[in-house]
Design a protein around this nucleic acid. Structure first.
Lengths: 104, 104
DNA sequence: AAATCATTTAACGAGTTGGTTAAACGTTAT
DNA sequence: ATAACGTTTAACCAACTCGTTAAATGATTT
């Protein structure tokens, strides 16, 4: 999943699909690589569950499926406190997760 | 960045660091791989900016730096609308491409 | 039926990743 | 000074990634 997102071409493909479904050739058009290369990228995205294929005739139409990205969002947001809060809040968070008997 | 997150061991290291800084040996302890392997993972995280190293004596203390994760969060959240509206969008698209009169 | 089109598969090569063990490096302790 | 410790570097290997070109597949058009 994260490795599917790790390649810039694949992120660009997702961005393109955010504007609507497209065929493999349409998806490949903006890129300077061969069609088989794009085909492989699409397979990677499909296997990561980020892309759904619908074959109608000889045209494979690809559509974005962002559902798995929710997991990535969940993962990343667990760390949100570490970049949004101040050091005080960070300390509070540390204390909340690993309570330390300080007094009382 | 995404490729740094792509390896489960590295995500586990980040999770561990979320509880506070730790030395390389401490970080390596829970894993069944050799110390050099962990050392490399730490280097990858460090190069991705997710980890800061402080050498004091012969001990390298590693601390989480979640700031770069903000970029990942930004990326992922651009797609949030696609998984919050997924059911409607998918239904509409399915109906448009393969019209299946199920209810009228 | 033959040609063309959209796409994938096959086979290959260069470079990277993720692991290993052995050795090196610098720090601390005896 | 010597030994032990924490960590990295070196050298190596197997497996994977990302790209290529050439051929195959299957659908459509002529």
């Amino acid at each position: 999943m994260f490795s599917a997102l790790a390649h810039p071409t694949r992120r660009a493909l997702l961005a393109r699909l955010a504007d609507g479904p497209a065929s493999v050739t349409e998806l490949a058009a903006p890129f300077a690589v061969s069609l088989p290369a794009i085909s492989k990228h699409i397979s990677v995205l499909e296997q990561a569950g980020l892309l759904q294929r619908t074959q109608s005739g000889r045209v494979h139409t690809c559509a974005l499926d962002a559902a798995p990205l929710r997991d990535a969002a969940d993962f990343v947001q667990r760390y949100q406190v570490f970049w949004t809060q101040t050091l005080d809040a960070l300390a509070a968070y540390a204390e909340a997760t690993a309570p330390e008997p300080e007094s009382d």
